[in-house]
Design a protein around this nucleic acid. Structure first.
Length: 340
DNA sequence: AATCCGGGGTA
DNA sequence: TACCCAGGATT
């Protein structure tokens, strides 16, 4: 494989067909990119598609324009800006890392970025190459797919992808090269029905030569989603319900209606446990909400409850989509106020 | 090396 | 429905 020709082909395509309008690609007056913007974008785009990340990027940068502003904000405000985007550990780690940077300064190397919470090999390579010109090759889903096809490797291991990406990286233009590979994967070398006729690497692609480029890479096997039944209670009104802060790894840091997993038991038992914990009296059954996450399928039955619990304006707290659905269900039913 | 962690887009 | 998305932390 002629690496020089490969680089010229892809970088030429990138200059003409790359996604130049993305808001995190703007440069400052000195021609460099703001590392803060690059970092926020890279974290936001972890397992999140560009079209959706864009909206959250604008929202987040408006709320926290600088690393100092982010470091000084309450965590709840950071999660509020992240509300609905998912994988909330990203927001919590972003906040922690900003506080480290406010204290110790912004890293300027791959190793320095890698030491921050929520920054792994991908993000450290992206920030150090895009904002600081360091010769680090990124490995993400796009890179994996493009290289798997280019060399017709059906089951590319992490080590193989990283080694191949390192070898192909243009040391003179590492940031451009990384973005070029990712743009190709996102717009041409897409998972299904790749647009091989528009690909600058078609003459050198082993997967295209095989006749079935979409066969590469082989799909990853994923665990089936678990079925989970739970009950939730609404004390107060849909606009000003009693809310709890969630702890733990699932939706941690967000707020929501009190929730109890049914486990292997009955819904009634779970409701009784929940009512006992909250010291409320269960009232009418309001309905059922289903919510699917990557790894579980939730079926939540919502009950109204009477009791002396303080209400919180729902819009003031960061809530998950699940809790938005539960509150929307109650609002649609016209639940106004407790009866007593 | 597996599993967990959200939510939505797309065929 | 199945598979994917500018991955990282934990076990």
């Amino acid at each position: 494989m002629d690496v020089a020709a490969l680089r010229a082909s892809l970088l030429g395509w990138f200059a003409a067909q790359g996604r130049a309008d993305l808001p995190w690609r703007v440069t400052r007056e000195d021609g460099q990119r703001d590392p803060y913007r690059v970092w926020v974008a890279e974290v936001l785009l972890q397992q999140t598609q560009v079209v959706r990340g864009r909206v959250y990027f604008e929202r987040f940068l408006t709320a926290f324009p600088t690393v100092q502003a982010l470091a000084l904000a309450p965590q709840e405000a950071v999660l509020k800006a992240w509300e609905g985007c998912g994988y909330y550990a990203r927001a919590r780690n972003l906040h922690r890392a900003a506080q480290v940077m406010a204290r110790e300064g912004v890293p300027v190397t791959y190793d320095g970025w890698l030491a921050l919470p929520g920054v792994g090999p991908y993000t450290a390579a992206a920030v150090s190459s895009l904002a600081f010109g360091e010769g680090r090759a990124v490995m993400d889903g796009n890179v994996r797919r493009v290289l798997s096809r280019l060399y017709a490797v059906e089951v590319p291991t992490d080590a193989w992808v990283q080694g191949t990406a390192d070898a192909l990286l243009d040391p003179a233009r590492p940031g451009e090269w990384n973005e070029a590979v990712m743009d190709l994967g996102a717009t041409v070398c897409v998972p299904k029905r790749p647009l091989c006729g528009a690909c600058p690497l078609r003459a050198q692609c082993a997967a295209l030569a095989s006749g079935e480029p979409a066969r590469y890479p082989a799909p990853k096997v994923r665990a089936a989603a678990r079925e989970v039944r739970a009950v939730a209670v609404l004390a107060g009104t849909p606009g000003t319900p009693y809310l709890e802060e969630r702890h733990g790894t699932l939706l941690g840091g967000l707020w929501g209606l009190p929730l109890e997993d049914c486990g292997d038991g009955t819904e009634g038992d779970a409701l009784a446990r929940l009512a006992g914990r909250l010291q409320v009296r269960p009232a009418e059954r309001l309905g059922v909400v289903t919510h699917t996450m990557t790894h579980r399928h939730l079926t939540v039955t919502l009950y109204r409850a009477d009791g002396a619990l303080p209400g919180t304006p729902a819009d003031a707290r960061p809530l998950s989509r699940l809790d938005r659905k539960l509150l929307a269900l109650a609002a649609d039913l016209g639940v106004q106020r407790p009866l007593f």
